[in-house]
Design a protein around this nucleic acid. Structure first.
Lengths: 122, 122
DNA sequence: CAGAATCCTGCGCGATACTG
DNA sequence: CAGTATCGCGCAGGATTCTG
């Protein structure tokens, strides 16, 4: 028995849209994916943290874990001292790049158009 | 600083990607936009709330306000009693549809592929 | 260096009541 | 009907410390 008998009237879960959001909708999910994307290649834990900046270690760790368990990223651990772990986009994660780029492009276009409009209106 | 090692310094705000996320990255932003999109036409406040389900009135209201102030949706108020307010995607909001569809399509594809894999592995 | 474990706080967000 | 206003709690998530 659910605490909420009508989970979704808008059956968001059953749509591809809702499914995607459940994977990349977290606060830092897309940011991490994007960082992995622009880095073009494996990146170490601390590097990644530094690259993103706004995220705490704790949040980064949990985000990475979720992304990994959802098969969107790959974690490679080198058995050595000191430890070395590299993260990279998995095959599945790579397939998300078009999504990331669409988002990126929309923002860039709107930024330039906005500048344009500002000039025109002024 | 060495410019070679990094293009992405964590200045997420300055990228198109970060800009887009600042507009649609909120918890319910994309869900609301998507709901407006699939509805194909103006939709009233309570209708929208019912369609989404998981969102509270408070969050819905604040989300709508932000989307409106960012020019992504349009709010039309009919001066009558009882009140009637309709929300719809603005021109700018419509330009986001490709983004929403990319997200949607990715999810649908992955869902079917997943079903496939499940069968194969089993 | 890459995390795990703890503690702790803000505020996100829901529930409720009220208004024009 | 479409919101505001208020209260309160739950927990996301930051800071810090500890370990292999």
């Amino acid at each position: 028995m659910d605490s909420q008998s009508f989970a979704y009237t808008g059956d968001l879960k059953n749509t591809g849209f809702g499914y995607t959001l459940s994977l990349i909708g977290g606060k830092y999910k897309m940011i991490v994916l994007y960082a992995l994307y622009v880095n073009k290649g494996p990146i170490r834990y601390n590097e990644l943290k530094r690259a993103i900046g706004i995220v705490s270690f704790k949040s980064l760790t949990s985000t990475l874990k979720e992304l990994e368990s959802d098969q969107l990223i790959h974690r490679k651990e080198y058995p050595q001292v000191p430890p070395k772990v590299e993260y990279s986009l998995s095959e599945q994660g790579l397939s998300l790049i078009p999504v990331l780029e669409t988002i990126c492009n929309w923002g860039e276009e709107r930024l330039t158009k906005q500048a344009h409009t500002a000039v025109i209106l002024d």
